[in-house]
Design a protein around this nucleic acid. Structure first.
Lengths: 190, 190
DNA sequence: GTCTATAGAGTGATAGAC
DNA sequence: GTCTATCACTCTATAGAC
């Protein structure tokens, strides 16, 4: 049988996990073939540009997901405090409470960084801008600086959780962050 | 001439920069040979265990540097607030104000993580413990949680600075952190 | 016949070990 | 420098859907 109904879009989540597990360089075509169940012929059929095209497609899909689930709600939401809290919940879910790393952040530190520099920079820029807007609506001073801090905490939390093999670190950091943002947003509560 | 005054210890800083630039997997022996000026024979003379031994030696040297310059001063210092401030100054210098990434953090996110898991975890554990001790001496509540947050901010700041190719992000985050810690340490100043 | 999805032998280059 | 393994990738071939 030659046809086994594969679609390019269905491959992206699997490819994402492969790149998260191995990084770009170490994700060999044999590993990709084994985990997708596809031969080189199929892989090059869907991604004529090879590994680089695969990674770019994965980054695009990540960007699309965050745009829909995180960035746009932050921009268009009504209650800024609730929107920021919803963002933290979505982030906790996406990163599986610290068990999953951020592929974008990992690529930023890797050798292959320059190949994907535009997509990497764009992802964080969009996130920071959307979050800073919500923080501004919530009346926070220096929303850009605070948004930068929140993103750094999330990325650093993922690094620490993986480094110490202790996903709870990420959960604790998100909880602290939530408490800190809440406290300032509702100063009457204490 | 067979001898050209190379010592194993002199190679470690160069190897560190190579691994920071390329990561472990992508730092090929030919790259290492080119940048150290040594042939494969010499490299295997100094590091019979190959690349893995090189990286472990680099991690050991990093650990030694932080132990002397960061961890021990935090543990043995007198004025806790001054010690923490000195730590941030040392960290800013070590990471070249955001121009240099943290090799330990980068390895934690990479495919080769398991090979160096013990050294990676130990580095962050020692840092957090030393910092939490100083924060406790300074009278801070939840010193462990706060130390975790400081480490995450540093690591995340390095990720963001590299991702957006904007080292100033790291400098700004350190400045915010310093201000936040100072404010709480000397509540009488405002 | 044409188009799409598949499989995999075979390419040259390069890897790390020694 | 030698060695073997593996890399990303090319190419040919094939099976079914239209």
């Amino acid at each position: 049988m030659a046809r086994r109904i594969s679609e390019r879009a269905d491959l992206l989540p699997v490819l994402g996990e492969i790149f998260r597990d191995h990084g770009f360089e170490a994700a060999s075509l044999s590993v990709i073939g084994a985990r997708t169940g596809l031969g080189k012929g199929s892989l090059y059929h869907f991604f004529p540009g090879g590994k680089e095209e695969m990674a770019k497609a994965v980054l695009d899909e990540i960007d699309r997901w965050f745009e829909n689930e995180v960035f746009r709600p932050l921009r268009e939401g009504g209650n800024a405090a609730a929107d920021i809290e919803a963002m933290l919940v979505a982030v906790d879910g996406y990163f599986r409470s610290g068990h999953r790393i951020c592929l974008v952040g990992a690529l930023a530190l890797a050798d292959s960084r320059e190949r994907f520099a535009a997509q990497i920079a764009g992802y964080f820029a969009a996130w920071q801008e959307a979050l800073a807007g919500a923080l501004a609506r919530a009346g926070r001073a220096d929303p850009d600086g605070l948004a930068e801090e929140v993103l750094a905490l999330i990325q650093g939390g993922l690094v620490l959780a993986r480094a110490r093999d202790e996903a709870d670190i990420f959960t604790r950091l998100l909880a602290r962050l939530l408490a800190r943002l809440r406290l300032k947003l509702r100063p009457a509560s204490h």
